[in-house]
């Protein structure tokens, strides 16, 4: 419902501003194809590695090893792969999320929490490498600790809000 209203407003506003809606839509949608091409290899490597990791039983071993510590923190072990890859690669995080959706379902508690965690965080290290790398910055000063603290905040509030909204 709110999305439908948003789309209507956008279309009316754009028509009012004399935008060629059909042409603009097609131009935008065309950019989706290179994007999908770019993310596919990362998705494939991560999904393949994750599939072996799960099928072999290594995932169960790791989660039973981590679960005492994670239970204290109230973190579902199924969220660990997502949390680990999130700061490095957006595509791998999408693969991890989609893996969680297949295993547990998008409307399970795990699926809902994973969605919030992915949606509220960013690929911190990738952004860092891209932006500072582009101008040859070696000394990053407060950027790394501040970015990591902000990431940490999004994880903590994401977990807290999930238990508030979904339990």
């Amino acid at each position: 419902m709110p999305v439908a209203i948003l789309i209507i407003l956008l279309l009316v506003y754009a028509a009012f501003r004399r935008v060629n809606i059909f042409q603009a839509f097609c131009e935008g949608a065309a950019q989706a194809i290179p994007l999908m091409k770019t993310i596919l290899p990362t998705l494939a490597v991560f999904s393949a590695a994750m599939a072996v990791f799960r099928a072999s039983g290594a995932f169960d071993l790791l989660s039973s090893f981590l679960s005492p510590a994670l239970n204290v923190l109230g973190v579902d072990p199924a969220l660990v792969p997502l949390l680990v890859v999130r700061p490095f690669s957006g595509s791998a995080a999408l693969a991890a999320l989609s893996d969680i959706f297949t295993q547990y379902g998008p409307d399970s508690r795990t699926g809902l929490t994973a969605s919030v965690l992915l949606g509220s965080s960013e690929t911190v290290f990738y952004t860092l490498a891209l932006y500072f790398g582009s101008v040859g910055i070696k000394k990053t000063r407060f950027a790394v600790p501040a970015a990591l603290l902000s990431l940490f905040t999004s994880v903590v509030t994401g977990l807290l809000l999930s238990s508030l909204f979904f339990d």
């Binding site: 789309i7 956008l10 279309l11 754009a14 935008v19 809606i21 603009a24 839509f25 097609c26 131009e27 935008g28 949608a29 950019q31 989706a32 994007l35 999908m36 993310i39 596919l40 998705l43 494939a44 991560f46 999904s47 393949a48 599939a51 999408l94 693969a95 989609s98 893996d99 297949t102």
Partner: peptide, 22 residues
């Protein structure tokens, strides 16, 4: 599965990137 994920994302990407370009 990665191909399936891309296909699942394709709808969202095509529609939103189209709308956002508008």
């Amino acid at each position: 599965d990665a191909i399936n994920t891309v296909l699942r994302l394709s709808g969202a990407y095509l529609i939103w990137m189209g709308l956002l370009n508008i």
